[in-house]
Simulated scan of single mutants.
Amino acid sequence: MLNYNIQIKAFDGYVLNLSVIQIINYLSKNNIKVKGPIHLPTKKKRYTILRSPHVHKKSREQFQLYTHKILVVVYNVKDNLLQQMSIPSCVKLEINKRC
């Protein structure tokens, strides 16, 4: 039995919230103690691109990419139980062991 930190990341906040609810429901059905969800700061990545490749240097276009993150702490769980969860492909899970 081990303790884990599960960090869940997605570009879409709505899909992230649905996935977190799905994960917490799955873990609670298996009688696993869960702490969270703990919302972590959203990261903003900004890109500036020239609109014209040749002359108009001042004409630029800017894009932003937001990465939403949520942390869930799981206590006393078996290794194989976490890999049986099904989540959407646009959501990334990072599972780390706690001391």
Results as ranks from 00 to 15, higher is better:
V15F: 00
C99A: 01
S89R: 13
R98W: 12
P88H: 05
K97W: 06
P88C: 12
A10I: 06
V55H: 03
Q22E: 08
H56F: 12
S19H: 01
I87K: 05
I32N: 01
K44W: 02
K57C: 13
M85K: 04
C90N: 11
L81N: 14
L82I: 10
N30L: 14
S59F: 03
I95G: 04
R60T: 01
S19Q: 00
V15C: 00
Y66A: 11
L65A: 12
Q7T: 15
R98N: 06
L16G: 07
S19C: 02
I70E: 03
K69E: 12
K58H: 07
L27E: 11
L16H: 04
N30D: 10
I87F: 02
S59P: 00
I21K: 08
E94Q: 07
V34Y: 00
N31W: 05
S52G: 14
P41D: 15
K9E: 01
N25E: 08
K43Y: 10
Q84H: 01
K29G: 01
R98S: 11
K58Y: 07
H39A: 11
M1K: 14
K92P: 05
R51M: 15
I8W: 12
N17R: 15
V74Q: 10
K35F: 15
I70V: 13
N17P: 01
N25A: 12
E94V: 06
K69H: 06
Y75H: 10
I23M: 03
N76S: 15
K57F: 14
Q83V: 13
K58Q: 07
K45W: 12
K45M: 09
I87H: 04
M1T: 07
K33P: 09
N96W: 08
S28Q: 06
S59A: 09
V77A: 00
R98H: 08
I38T: 03
H39T: 06
L93R: 01
D79K: 14
K9H: 02
V15I: 02
I38G: 04
E94D: 06
I49Q: 03
G36Q: 07
R51F: 14
Y75F: 05
V20T: 06
F11A: 05
D12R: 07
K78E: 13
N5M: 04
Q83I: 13
K69C: 04
V91P: 03
L93E: 00
T48K: 05
R51S: 15
L2Q: 08
K29I: 01
V72N: 13
V55S: 01
S86W: 08
T67C: 12
L50P: 10
K35M: 13
D79L: 08
N5K: 11
L71N: 13
S89G: 08
S19T: 03
L71S: 12
L65S: 13
N30W: 10
L16E: 10
H54E: 01
H54I: 08
V73G: 01
L50E: 14
M85T: 03
R60V: 02
K69S: 07
N3V: 02
I38S: 02
T48H: 02
Y26Q: 06
P88F: 11
N3C: 01
N80T: 11
Q64F: 14
L27I: 09
I24T: 06
N17V: 05
H56A: 13
L82Q: 11
Y47R: 05
